[in-house]
Every structure is written in C-alpha cells, then in structure tokens.
Simulated scan of single mutants.
Amino acid sequence: MQKFIVRRLLSVIPVLFVVSVVIFTLLKMVPGSPAATLLGDLATADDIAKLEEKMGLNRPLVEQYFIWIGNMFHGDFGISTAGGEPVASVVFSHVKPTISLALYALIIASVIAIPMGMLAAKNKGTGIDHGVTVLSLAGISLPSFLFGLFLMLIFAVKLHFFPVSGYVEISRGLWPHIKSLTLPAVALGFMNAALMMRMTRSAMLEVLGSDYIRMAKAKGVRNFVITTKHALRNSLVTIITMIGQSAVQMLAGAAVIESLFAIPGLGQLMVNSVGRRDYYVIQAIVLLIALFNVLINMLVDLLYGVADPRVRAT
C-alpha cells in the first residue's frame, strides 16, 4: 500500500508538468499584454515596453516558462496584475468557499442519489423505478444555473428561507455558513446526483441479478439484508468512482454557480481573472484544480481497497 501511495504521488509531477505547459502556452497565445492591463488605457507604448522588460515578458517563451516554474518551487506564484497582490494569497483567500461549496454539494448529492438508486433497483419496473428515472433525466437535462435561478426565486425571494446570494464564513457561525451555501450546493449537486442515481441503479441491478443473490433469496435472507449488506457492498466500487468524478466536476465547474450566488470562490475568481487578463492567477487556479483532481483520484483508488478486499489483494 505504501509503494502504491508513493507511486501515485510521484505521478502528480508529470501531470502537473503537462498541465502547466498547456496552460502557459494557451495564455501566451491570448492577445494582449498583462503589462498593458496593469498600466491601464492611458499608458504609452514605451511605458508598456519598460514594464514588460521588468516583468520578463520580452524574453523567449521557454525562458519565461522555466522562470515561472522555478519561482513556483520557491513559493512565488507571481503578482496579480489586477490587484498587485501575491497570487498565492489571492488564490488561498478564494479556495475555502469553493471547497466548502463542493463538499456540501457532494454530501447532498450522495445522500439523495445513493438511496434513490438503491430503491429504483430494488423496485425495478415499478412506479418508483420510473419516477427515479424521470428525476434523473430531469437532473441531467436541466442546466445548473437555471435550476439555481428557480431555487433562488422560490426559496429566497418568495419564501425567504435562505439568502438570495452572498457567502458567510464558517468563523461567523456554522448555521449561517450552511444557510448561505444550501441553495448553491443543491443547484450544483443536482446534476451530479442524477448521474449518481443512474450509476447506482445500474450497478445494483447487475449485482442483484447475480447467482449468489438468488441463492440468498432462496435461503430466505431478508430483502433489506440482501440490498444493503450484499448488493450495496459489491456495488461500492462503481459508486465510489462516481462520487470521485462528481467531486472533481464540482470543483472545476463551480464557476457558474459561484457567479450566480455571488460566492467569492475559485470559479468566480477565474471568471474575473479571464476578463482582467490576470494570467498568473489563471495559471495558479488551473494547476490547483489539476492537483485536486490527481489527489481525489488517488483517494478513490485507496477507497477501492477498503470497499473490495479483492482490489486490496491485487
């Protein structure tokens, strides 16, 4: 197990290298100059050229890349061209809302999707199964921002159960923090919950059709025990995979929901940074999301061994 963890941690290096090369190249192809953005519209060509020379932007691209990478190894991610602050502090101040939102949305999606997928598989062909199928299709088809607007209109504007927008830090209280994230978490998690329902139902149906399940039924084992102890346990590998994929999608795709509900997370920071041509911030966010992706997938692989002893033995 330790060798496996070390190998997966070492695999982070080539992944981040490839991602860094791609994002660095793409951003350099975008028209415009960070120096011009930093100086403003009234800057002259000489002022822009002097600042570009000071920032090293007039050097060859390969040299710029290795300077950027070398600075990152020393904890220097650059200076934000929009606010003049260190990129590390800017990104760190926005990462906590995104993680809180993604975790909350993942919990909501898992709590809803897994039991409903099990229920649909157990009652295959009945009205319950058809209802879960319709709900999952609606979740896949309905855009998250449109569902978020619907939730905002009903539960915030009409019923006043939750705030319309904004973010409350957990340091100001757990309940205000949860309350401010409930509507965006439901909107973000609904689509992933729909996918998890379908995957759970499919995995459970495959296991419930196995010979040992029919043998257990013939021996008189209760349906509840068959569903929870035998079928669910042998479907966990598929379910864990879907949960891991959903976590990555929520972290990477929270930009729309964060902008809609005015949550100061990485998604909103990314959107604002693209508009302001804040290249260093964009590069840092993409690398951070790539790192989260690799770490989440490594955690999923470790959970495979916990869920299924055969995987652990292999």
Rank of each mutant, 00 (worst) to 15 (best):
Gly220Asn: 10
Ile282Cys: 11
Leu106Val: 01
Leu135Tyr: 15
Met116Pro: 00
Arg7Leu: 06
Gly305Ser: 12
Thr98Asn: 12
Phe73Ala: 12
Lys179Phe: 00
Phe292Ile: 06
Thr228Met: 04
Ser80Asn: 09
Ala36Cys: 03
Pro264Arg: 14
Met152Thr: 13
Val18Ser: 13
Asn272Lys: 14
Val221Ser: 04
Met55Tyr: 10
Ser136Cys: 05
Leu61Thr: 04
Leu42His: 07
Ile108Glu: 01
Phe190Thr: 14
Ala43Pro: 13
Phe66Val: 06
Pro176Gly: 05
Lys179Asn: 15
Val286Gln: 02
Leu61Pro: 00
Asn223Cys: 00
Gly32Pro: 02
Ser80Gly: 07
Glu206Val: 06
Val186Gly: 09
Val164Gly: 04
Val221Arg: 01
Lys54Gln: 15
Arg59Met: 10
Val30Ser: 05
Lys229Tyr: 03
Glu169Met: 11
Leu232Trp: 00
Met29Ile: 07
Met204Leu: 14
Leu291Tyr: 05
Tyr212Pro: 02
Phe17Leu: 15
Leu188Trp: 06
Pro86Arg: 04
Thr314Trp: 04
Asn192Glu: 14
Arg310Asn: 10
Thr200Ser: 11
Val248Arg: 10
Leu42Cys: 01
Gly220Asp: 08
Asp46Val: 08
Phe162Tyr: 07
Arg59Phe: 00
Ile240Pro: 07
Gly75Arg: 01
Tyr304Cys: 10
Ser165Pro: 01
Pro264Asn: 13
Leu269Ala: 08
Val207Phe: 00
Ala36His: 11
Asn234Glu: 02
Arg233Leu: 01
Tyr304Gly: 08
Met270Phe: 13
Arg214Glu: 14
Ile128Asp: 08
Leu181His: 10
Glu206Ser: 15
Pro34Asp: 08
Leu146Ala: 15
